[in-house]
Amino acid sequence: MRNVATVTLSPATQGTTVTWAMDGPSPLIAKIMSLFFDADTMIGGDFAQGLVNLKAIAEI
């Protein structure tokens, strides 16, 4: 699959809000797999760790 990852930075009262999203077409096999597998459970931890890493780098 080919997806576009977007990181959006928005000013917040105490710092910056970071939103990380991926968008793209979903082939038939991915649609079928989504019935049986939860993507957030499978890769959500990786995204969360990536945001923690980004925060650490940004605050240096």
Rank of each mutant, 00 (worst) to 15 (best):
K31G: 13
G44S: 03
V52P: 04
F37R: 13
T6L: 02
D23H: 09
I60H: 07
A56I: 05
A58M: 03
K31L: 11
Q14G: 12
L9V: 06
R2I: 15
N53D: 11
M42K: 11
P25N: 07
T19L: 06
A56K: 02
A5V: 15
G45V: 02
V7N: 03
Q14D: 15
T13E: 09
A58K: 04
A21P: 06
I32F: 05
V18N: 01
T8V: 10
Q49L: 09
N53Q: 10
V18I: 07
M33H: 10
G50S: 05
A39L: 10
T8H: 00
A39V: 15
V7C: 06
D46R: 07
F37L: 14
I32P: 06
G44L: 02
W20V: 15
G24H: 02
I43H: 05
G24W: 02
L35N: 14
F37I: 15
A5N: 11
I57D: 08
M33A: 15
M33I: 15
A30P: 06
P11S: 10
W20Q: 12
S34G: 13
G15M: 01
I43P: 03
D38C: 09
N53A: 12
K31Q: 13
G45P: 03
M22P: 06
I43T: 12
Q49A: 14
F36T: 15
S10Q: 09
P25W: 01
V7F: 04
T13Y: 00
D46K: 08
D38M: 07
I29E: 10
E59W: 00
R2K: 13
N3T: 15
T41G: 04
T17S: 07
P25L: 05
S26W: 05
P25T: 09
N53W: 01
L35D: 11
G15P: 03
G44R: 01
D40K: 12
I43C: 07
L35Y: 08
F36A: 15
S10P: 05
A58L: 00
G50Y: 03
G45L: 01
G15T: 02
N53F: 00
M22F: 07
S26R: 14
T41E: 09
L28G: 13
I29Y: 09
M42S: 12
Q49F: 02
V7W: 00
M1R: 12
F37W: 11
